[in-house]
Write a protein that binds this DNA or RNA. Structure first.
Length: 436
RNA sequence: GCGGAAGUACCCAAGUGGCCGAAGGGGCUCCCCUGCUAAGGGAGUAGACGUCUAAACCGCGUGCGAGGGUUCAAAUCCCUCCUUCCGCGCCA
């Protein structure tokens, strides 16, 4: 969400930004916003004048009523003033209706106008124009065949998709044995990794109110992603970012307390409508997964610096588990409407011989902060909007695909990288086991 | 979940229809007085949001948990909801 003042002062900049994102159908929204803003302010001004008048006259009634005890003539005068106020009442309630109507419409329009993207974002209509920035580690292709990830998991008796389908349907999983333990090991390792970077570990609510949902994500994302609890104003979180950023709703943070650097764990629930749908056979795109996340709330001037730091943490984390990765920058057309700049960290899949998304790092600028009214109080007493960022540390079980494929040996065993061994009871390898 | 109580500014707290945007106290800030300091005196202390403005000040509007309603006028009356506290119940 952008500032309405920006549209007042420089509508062309906002239009240009919409064009850069290949959303020309939204161009009329700019003029619509200007019009609604004008109407809204006119209504506010007139209503405000009427209220001022009413307040004055009502006080006068009060005074006259007081005097009426000694001088009955004053009572009549009071009645006359009452009638005056009542006369304006109709116009005032009409204006109040208009205020509400215009404000609501304006808000709806403003929610659709995308955040101003950073000047450095590459321009392109869709994800095919995303830009590979840099690779980390050698994308190796072994001389033996790498099975599909669920087959690798099955070779350790580590997954049951059939059972999950019976219980919850497609898009769920049972992880078992060493694979389940590995899943938790990766999360625990990522947690400690971030604690080591000075982040505070947080376990947030896994559900949230509708008002928070609207603040942290766009309407289209909400429809495509969120599960609603029947009969309650509660949604299952799609990522801990939602409840982590939501925590700051209506808060004014002392400047000295910044930056807030948090690493949160949560299960994540997603409908995955649209996108490419839920995968039939595997744990790449599913309705439920777990994630260790990074969250930063900081001063506006520092958000780009944090953005750079955050995605590098992901790279460092994956490299420490011997997984080759690359940084892929999101182009303008692929950037969600709330984001200023974003990149994916993609892990190498030796089986498919291509990179696939495992982390997503975003600088939201003041977009979430404006929607949720997250402000900072400066030393000079002024308040201003914070910036928010988020990034994935690890999101298994998808992340396990990269892990298993890259650490698989010709004999079918999987090497446990040293950093994970303390979380696996010292185990150095996962060995194939007979089918149960 | 049931019963009871309560939500007023940084904190405590008075206020049941009219100069109440809100007494009083504490705290905090500034000033003065006094060399003996768990001292005295004075002043200030809604923040926020909206509007107005080139911007700011000022002004105006909103604001007493939230949202509605009654009224010329609501902290005060009515309705709904939320939160907290105390019992009871249930439960990892």
């Amino acid at each position: 969400m952008i500032d309405i003042k920006l549209i007042r002062e420089d509508p062309e900049l906002v239009r240009e930004n919409i064009r850069k994102k290949f959303q020309d159908e939204k161009l009329p929204l700019v003029d619509r916003a200007l019009e609604l803003d004008r109407l809204n302010r006119a209504a506010i001004n007139e209503a405000s004048d009427l209220r001022a008048k009413r307040n004055q006259l009502s006080k006068k009634v009060g005074m006259l009523m007081g005097q009426a005890k000694k001088d009955p003539a004053k009572a009549e005068e009071a009645e006359a003033v009452k009638a005056q106020v009542k006369a304006d009442g109709e116009r005032l309630s009409e204006l109040e209706g208009l205020e509400e109507k215009y404000a609501a419409e304006l808000h709806a329009v403003m929610m659709k106008i995308p955040q101003i993207i950073d000047a450095s974002v590459p321009i392109g209509p869709d994800d095919s124009h995303n830009v590979e920035v840099q690779r980390f580690g050698e994308p190796a292709v072994p001389d033996f065949e790498i099975p599909y990830h669920t087959d690798i998991m099955e070779s350790f008796n580590g997954i049951d998709l059939d059972g999950a389908r019976r219980v919850a349907g497609n898009g769920f999983y049972y992880l078992m044995g060493d694979v389940a333990r590995l899943h938790e090991a990766v999360l625990a390792y990522a947690r400690d990794f971030m604690i080591g970077k000075g982040f505070t570990y947080v376990i947030p609510p896994f559900m949230m109110h509708g008002a928070i949902v609207e603040g942290v994500m766009s309407q289209s994302d909400m429809d495509a992603m969120m599960y609603k609890i029947e009969g309650e104003d509660l949604y299952l979180i799609g990522t801990s970012e939602h409840s982590m950023i939501g925590r700051y709703i209506d808060q004014i943070l002392p400047e000295a307390s910044l930056p807030h650097t948090l690493t949160s764990y949560s299960p994540c629930f997603r409908k995955e409508k649209g996108a490419h749908g839920v995968e039939e056979r595997g744990v790449y795109r599913i309705h439920q997964f777990e994630k260790q996340e990074m969250i930063v709330v900081c001063k506006p001037a520092e958000s780009m610096e944090w953005y750079e730091r955050l995605w590098r943490y992901s790279v460092e984390l994956f490299r420490s588990m011997d997984i080759p990765v690359r940084q892929l920058e999101c182009c303008s057309g692929d950037l969600a409407d709330l984001k200023v700049k974003s990149c994916d960290i993609e892990a190498w899949s030796p089986r498919q011989q291509k990179y696939f998304e495992v982390c997503s790092c975003s600088n939201l600028g003041d977009a979430q902060a404006r929607r949720l009214r997250i402000r900072i109080k400066g030393e000079d007493g002024r308040t201003y909007l914070a910036h928010t960022l988020n990034n994935t540390c690890v999101a298994p079980p998808r992340m396990l695909i990269a892990f298993l494929e890259n650490n698989l040996s010709a004999d079918g065993s999987v090497r446990i990288p040293e950093v994970l061994r303390p979380y696996m009871g010292g185990k150095e390898r996962l060995e194939r086991c007979p089918k149960v």
